[in-house]
Simulated scan of single mutants.
Amino acid sequence: MRWSWKGVWAGALAMAVVVWLGAHGAQAAPRGAQDVATMLRTGDVVFQTSGSRQSKAIQEATHSPLSHVGLVEVTQEGTFVVEAVQPVKRTPFRQWKERGVKGRLLVLRPEGLDDAAKARAVAEAKRHLGKPYDALFGWGDEAMYCSELVRKAYAAGAGVAYGTMERLGDLDVTGLKREIAERYRGPVPVDLELVTPASLAADARLAVVYSDFPEAR
């Protein structure tokens, strides 16, 4: 059998590359809904760019591509996202992912909480199933918007309020005043306090599990 040191070196180099990729590229590799779903755990917070009519306004106001957010629930029947749309509902993860622009998503996981606390947060979110979507971004419980649902679910279920409450007037609404005035049928409610998907995503207590949004954090 003939061999050379050159061949041995080439083979060792190739093996080293394979090992390095396995150690460093695992998080970025999954692209399909099924691959990403295997990484998810109950209580994970998932973000996407929504294709809804108001998505561009949310992106402009927050300077972020993240315009929709929900909570993951992993069950024996499959993986779901509890989300505040019209109405608040529980959506299969594959369907939820494909509904976002280009199928991109950001997955964040609460740090310092056990599985029981995360499960309680999801249970709190599910208490709001069937409620209408809150297009006026109020803070009452009679209707819900997406980031409100996530913040309230974790606050009630785990005692942790993610994100920061912000005044509508402190967001970048300069180019949106007409749209906002039409929605509220009057002056822009600058003192309205709300929590945005971008604010939740910026919370350092949430660790990145997977991301198609390198610019999001």
Results as ranks from 00 to 15, higher is better:
Val122Lys: 11
Arg41Cys: 02
Phe93Pro: 01
Tyr162Phe: 15
Tyr154Glu: 07
Tyr154Met: 12
Arg104Met: 02
Leu40Asn: 08
Val107Met: 05
Leu200Asn: 09
Glu182Phe: 15
Thr49Leu: 09
Phe213Ala: 04
Val209Arg: 03
Ala153Pro: 00
Phe93Arg: 05
Lys97Cys: 04
Val46Asp: 13
Met144Glu: 15
Val160Pro: 02
Ala153Arg: 01
Arg178Ser: 14
Trp96Phe: 13
Leu149Gly: 09
Cys146Asn: 12
Ala198Gln: 03
Gly22Asn: 05
Lys177Met: 15
Leu129Thr: 05
Phe80Trp: 15
Trp3His: 09
Met1Ala: 12
Arg99Tyr: 06
Ala116Phe: 04
Asp191Thr: 09
Trp9Lys: 13
Leu194Val: 00
Leu71Ser: 06
Leu149Gln: 10
Arg90Val: 01
Asp44Ser: 00
Asp141Cys: 08
Arg127Gly: 12
Lys177Arg: 15
Arg31His: 08
Tyr184Lys: 05
Asp170Ala: 09
Val188Thr: 00
Arg217Met: 10
Gly51Asn: 11
Val45Lys: 02
Phe213Gln: 01
Gln95Ala: 14
Glu83Pro: 14
Glu124Phe: 05
Leu176Thr: 08
Lys89Asp: 05
Met1Trp: 14
Val36Thr: 01
Pro87Trp: 13
Gly11Tyr: 02
Thr42Ile: 00
Ile180Gln: 09
Thr42Phe: 02
Ser64His: 04
Gln54Met: 12
Ala23Gly: 13
Lys118Trp: 07
Leu105Thr: 10
Trp20Ser: 12
Val101Phe: 01
Val72Ser: 11
Pro92Arg: 10
Tyr145Phe: 15
Thr79Asp: 01
Glu77Asp: 15
Ala207Leu: 04
Met1Gly: 13
Ala14Met: 08
Ala207Val: 13
Glu83Ser: 15
Arg217Asn: 11
Ala12Phe: 00
Ala117Trp: 08
Phe137Glu: 12
Ala26Arg: 11
Gln86Trp: 02
Trp20His: 13
Ala201Trp: 10
Leu106Cys: 11
Ala61Pro: 02
Arg120Thr: 05
Gln34Phe: 01
Arg53Cys: 00
Val18Thr: 07
Tyr154His: 10
Lys126Tyr: 11
Ala135Tyr: 05
Leu176Cys: 03
Glu179Asp: 14
Leu13Cys: 07
Ala84Arg: 15
Asp134Gln: 10
Gly163Thr: 07
Leu108Cys: 06
Val188Asp: 01
Glu77Cys: 04
Pro65Phe: 00
Gln76Tyr: 09
Ile180His: 13
Val173Thr: 15
Gly7Asp: 12
Arg151Met: 13
Asp141Gln: 14
Glu83Val: 15
Trp9Val: 14
Ala125Ile: 04
Ser4Asp: 04
Pro92Thr: 07
Gly112Met: 05
Thr79Phe: 00
Ala37His: 10
Arg167Asp: 13
Gly32Ser: 08
Val82Asp: 08
Val208Pro: 03
Pro214Tyr: 08
Ala143Ile: 09
Ala135Asp: 05
Arg31Lys: 14
Glu111Gln: 07
Glu73Leu: 11
Met15Ala: 10
Ser67Phe: 03
Thr42Ser: 06
Arg120Gly: 02
Gln27Tyr: 09
Ala12Ile: 08
Leu40Ile: 04
Val188Glu: 07
Ile58Thr: 10
Gly43Val: 01
Ala10Leu: 14
Val150Asn: 07
Trp20Tyr: 15
Trp3Asp: 08
Pro197Gln: 06
Ala121Asn: 08
Val188Arg: 02
Phe93Ala: 01
Leu206Gln: 04
Ser211Pro: 11
Leu176His: 07
Trp96Leu: 07
Gly138Thr: 12
Asp203Gln: 06
Ser52Tyr: 03
Arg185Val: 06
Cys146Gly: 07
Val19Leu: 00
